[in-house]
């Protein structure tokens, strides 16, 4: 399963990376090496082995619904490149290179 250059560009787009034309060929080669490595693993017989997402067996590490003090606002905004009226100031969304026009409505990126 080798990646085409078009697929490399697509991956770059999804990862919001601004890939120069000259970089595509090199990345194609590197990504294909990684894929070849992963293909080796697919040779293993993993029948009946559950996917491993956690490195420990812990479950239910929960907390009670008890308030703790929040940070002072100055501290929260301290590292912001720009802020205004107590809010983080971010550039125009399009200017981030995101071809997206989400409205502030429902939850998450849905």
């Amino acid at each position: 399963m080798a990646l085409t250059q078009a697929e490399v560009r697509e991956i770059g787009l999804i990862a919001r990376l601004n890939l120069e034309d000259g970089a595509i060929e090199g990345l194609q080669e590197e990504l294909n090496q990684i894929l070849t490595y992963v293909e080796h693993m697919q040779e293993l017989d993993l029948e009946g082995v559950a996917p491993t997402a956690y490195s420990t067996d812990f479950t239910d590490s929960l907390r009670d619904d008890v308030r703790v003090p929040s940070l002072p606002r100055e501290a929260v905004l301290m590292n912001a490149p720009e802020s205004k009226e107590g809010a983080f100031l971010v550039p125009r969304i399009k200017a981030l290179g995101i071809e997206d026009s989400r409205e502030d409505t429902a939850g998450g990126g849905s």
């Binding site: 205004k84 009226e85 107590g86 983080f88 971010v90 550039p91 125009r92 969304i93 026009s101 998450g108």
Partner: peptide, 25 residues
């Protein structure tokens, strides 16, 4: 839930025409 954004510089706080956004977490 996500943070709230106010788009400034456009009309009605909507994103169209906005020049920047204020983010409140």
């Amino acid at each position: 839930d996500t943070g709230k954004m106010i788009h400034v510089g456009g009309s009605d706080g909507r994103i169209t025409g906005a020049i920047a956004s204020l983010v409140d977490f």
